[in-house]
Write a protein that binds this DNA or RNA. Structure first.
Lengths: 140, 140
DNA sequence: AAGAGTAAGTTACAAAAAGTAACCATATGA
DNA sequence: TCATATGGTTACTTTTTGTAACTTACTCTT
């Protein structure tokens, strides 16, 4: 396993300082945009939707539903609306019969995929370790 | 705004290929460990708990609750249990009166903080843009 | 000596979110 | 003619969250 060096720790502490150092937790803001934005973008289903769109460039509703397996129509359509509103993806409807709707990432969405991939790669690499921890914990 | 270059796009596509290329979406696994691990680790409250612990090294229950403002006792204690089980943090109880309990990140937790920080920095940088998108969308 | 405060949670109940499955209109293919 | 496909929506159920009061045992204040 990769361990964190002292150098890295110093760097991390500086970043955390920059991020949290100024927060007055005694008078917390009633609403924090970063939290808000993050809760949408790092949502379980949103992440899968964005990654699959990054992979295929463009996908229609039912195709997307097949790849993001397990998601319901309701939640998929809801998430697509929110992700569109937040600027990650765009929706194009073609006046055919039956109607054809195509979803694809915006430029902004693509820039997010890059960040997201780093996280998911980490998850993929470390999930065996987490599962192992989880089992050990259960035995105690 | 930073745009994604063609070079980056090729790199991203390769990563996505590696991540998704082998998935048989017609016979999806009934449970995917990566999804599972990620849904715990990228949960809204978990992220805040981990980042504050990264900042302070060690925190007690009520102190943590003040920093992660808005979280309830119930959810905080539940998340702490899960994050402990998954190996991100450890809990030390001292047999004093009243009892003292200290939470701190494990080495694994620290390695996660580093990845997490990259994501949260991106969020911090881009949340104004998202808020802007959201407002425009509302007007349409 | 009575009452409040502190610690780290737990518990019962209410509200919000998510999952389930049927349904919509319209048209094509068997 | 009946089933299928399109992109969702709707009513209903189940799960997850949030709210607020309570716990145990000791100390500090009045």
């Amino acid at each position: 396993m990769e361990t964190t060096t002292d150098n890295q720790k110093v760097r991390i502490t500086k970043k955390l300082e920059k991020m949290f150092g100024h927060i007055d937790y005694k008078n917390p803001p009633e609403l924090c945009p970063v939290r808000d934005v993050m809760s949408v973008a790092s949502d379980q289903w949103s992440v899968l939707i964005i990654l699959w769109l990054g992979y295929f460039e463009t996908l229609r509703f039912n195709k997307l539903k097949k790849f993001v397996y397990g998601i319901s129509n309701k939640v998929l359509s809801q998430r697509l609306k929110v992700l569109e509103a937040d600027g990650y993806l765009s929706r194009k409807a073609y006046a055919e019969v039956p109607i054809r709707v195509e979803y694809s990432l915006t430029e902004f969405g693509h820039s997010y995929v890059e960040k997201l991939l780093e996280l998911t790669e980490w998850m993929q690499m470390n999930s065996p370790k987490v599962m192992e921890n989880r089992e050990k914990y259960g035995l105690i």
